[in-house]
Design a protein around this nucleic acid. Structure first.
Lengths: 106, 106
DNA sequence: GAGTGGCATCGATGACTGTCAATATAGACG
DNA sequence: CGTCTATATTGACAGTCATCGATGCCACTC
């Protein structure tokens, strides 16, 4: 297995974390907040889900390396990690570039 | 629910299709082929999975709008649809752009 | 038309996932 | 210390998913 393929497996794991409507909305909301961060209490209002469910999705995003969390007093703040999104964006962009002409099977 | 959010749900569905190591490898392989396409028989050699399983993953990619298939004689050719990948790449890039400064909860 | 190779579909199964109620933890404040 | 608020963890459950063997369908060839 090449290094490239290992990278693809990692990328697939991160994309899987993004491939849920709730998590994508949470991340998208974080991204448009000033500083790319928000406390959990504000995120709870975005989706009609229980607090443990939202906490679960945030954990998935955190374990995927897409967000980081920090406790400040009573509240916990989550923030986007742009460096995690950039290579994924680049990967998708590269796969959208088709070169050359199609060839038949033989 | 805003139009933006509907778009996010659609994007999440497409990202979910990408969030599998096998499917990401299949798509990545298609993207590097000349013309962005390949017959199924060539894709079968890429992964150590049964032919029905590969066919299943290709179907998922097709139903997500990421690839298109076409029969030419005995073989079926799959090709990348770049227009499906570009908006996703742009979405991830936009979420990687953090503006302003963080604000406390209150 | 009978046989062959390439690919799709079906049905079954074990594994994983999203969700919630209940409970735990951690900090703030009196 | 006791209480309140904010967030995390646990346990359970229903639904979804990845995988395979068996089978079906289609095109080509003889």
């Amino acid at each position: 297995m090449s290094i490239q393929e290992i990278g693809l497996d990692v990328a697939a794991g991160t994309l899987r974390a993004l491939g849920d409507p709730v998590r994508l909305r949470l991340l998208h909301e974080l991204a448009q907040r000033p500083g790319g961060e928000s406390c959990v209490c504000d995120l709870l209002g975005l989706v009609e889900l229980s607090q443990p469910t939202v906490s679960h999705h945030l954990k998935v995003l955190r374990e995927a390396g897409l967000v980081a969390s920090e406790r400040r007093g009573t509240w916990v703040y989550y923030r986007v990690i742009p460096e995690a999104l950039q290579p994924l964006s680049a990967l998708l962009a590269s796969m959208a570039e088709v070169s050359g002409t199609a060839q038949d099977c033989r």
